[in-house]
Amino acid sequence: MALLQLENIQAYYGAIYALKNISIEVNEGEIVTLIGSNGAGKTTTLKTISGQLKPREGKVIFNGEDITKHPAHITAQKGIAHVPEGRRIFPKLTVEENLEMGAFSIQDKKVIKEGMERAFHYFPRLKERIHQKGGTMSGGEQQMLAIARGLMSRPKILLLDEPSMGLAPVLVEQIFHIIQELNKEGMTILLVEQNANQALHIAHRGYVIQTGEIILKDSAANLLKNEQVKEAYLA
């Protein structure tokens, strides 16, 4: 059974049809990537999963439970961590305070401390800047902080929305390496990326979304060889 399933999701922004019968599966232990152009519906799909946007039709099934109508904070407590596009860290809070905000649903101080140590294992630069305010950090450091904050809730699945956006190539490589390391240690990841080449090279499977509809799904290796994908997203 899939860890996460979207079944015929239809979503709107007002009268605008945003998602049209979207069906996606993510199995435990996978990296699945959702690729497509700007405005295709990638971010909307993640917002629907995390409870920020309620679909008009269809279901979101997580760990065997229908969570379609759950508010976002309950969805997070169920084990879904959403690292949004644009990082959305708390700029006036320190690194440590940002990480603590990621653990808002955890009462056990020992668990929070272990989460901090795990975050610093993956992102040692954050430990060096533990008392620095998030808004004064570089774009790459803020992206590290956003992912680390997501990990603090001890999620079962990590939703990553455009983690490479605006980063220098060397930092993109670093972020993708960390995503792979997280996955090797058991983290299930749904990755939204405009950098389709990078995403498909680390993913197990992929979906291509266009104007709110899934037009292709296959193994990442096959999508890399697909002529339609090459022409539209890998050129």
Rank of each mutant, 00 (worst) to 15 (best):
I175S: 08
L190Q: 02
K20A: 07
Y13T: 03
Q107R: 15
R88Y: 04
D66F: 10
G79L: 05
A81L: 02
G115H: 02
E128V: 13
E193G: 11
E100T: 13
I215H: 11
N27L: 10
G86H: 07
L53C: 01
L160G: 02
A232K: 07
G150P: 06
R125A: 06
I31Q: 09
R56Q: 15
F176N: 10
S50D: 03
V170T: 14
V95C: 12
L182K: 07
I24L: 15
P84M: 12
E7L: 12
G86C: 12
L200C: 08
E114Y: 07
G134Q: 09
A15T: 14
Y17N: 15
M187A: 10
V192F: 00
P71L: 08
V83E: 02
I202S: 09
I80A: 02
I215E: 12
N38Y: 06
I106C: 12
G51K: 02
K184R: 15
T75V: 15
N195K: 14
E57S: 12
T94I: 13
K110Y: 03
R129C: 05
D66V: 08
A148F: 06
L99Q: 09
N222D: 15
K113G: 01
L191V: 06
S153K: 11
N63C: 05
A72G: 00
G29S: 11
L234S: 04
G58D: 07
G41N: 06
Q142S: 09
M144K: 05
G14D: 09
P91G: 07
V170L: 15
P84L: 12
S23H: 11
A81D: 03
Y13A: 10
Q107N: 14
G166M: 09
A203Q: 00
E30W: 01
L182A: 10
L4N: 05
H204S: 14
V208F: 06
K113A: 14
T48R: 00
V95P: 07
K54D: 00
P163E: 02
E181V: 13
Y207W: 11
H131S: 13
G36E: 03
M116A: 01
H204Q: 14
N183C: 07
L159T: 01
Q5A: 11
A103I: 08
N183T: 06
L34W: 01
L6C: 11
L158G: 03
G79R: 01
T211W: 02
I209E: 04
A18I: 10
L200E: 06
A235Y: 08
L34F: 06
Y122C: 09
Y13I: 10
L223N: 06
I112H: 11
E193Y: 08
S50P: 02
L93H: 04
L46Y: 00
K109A: 13
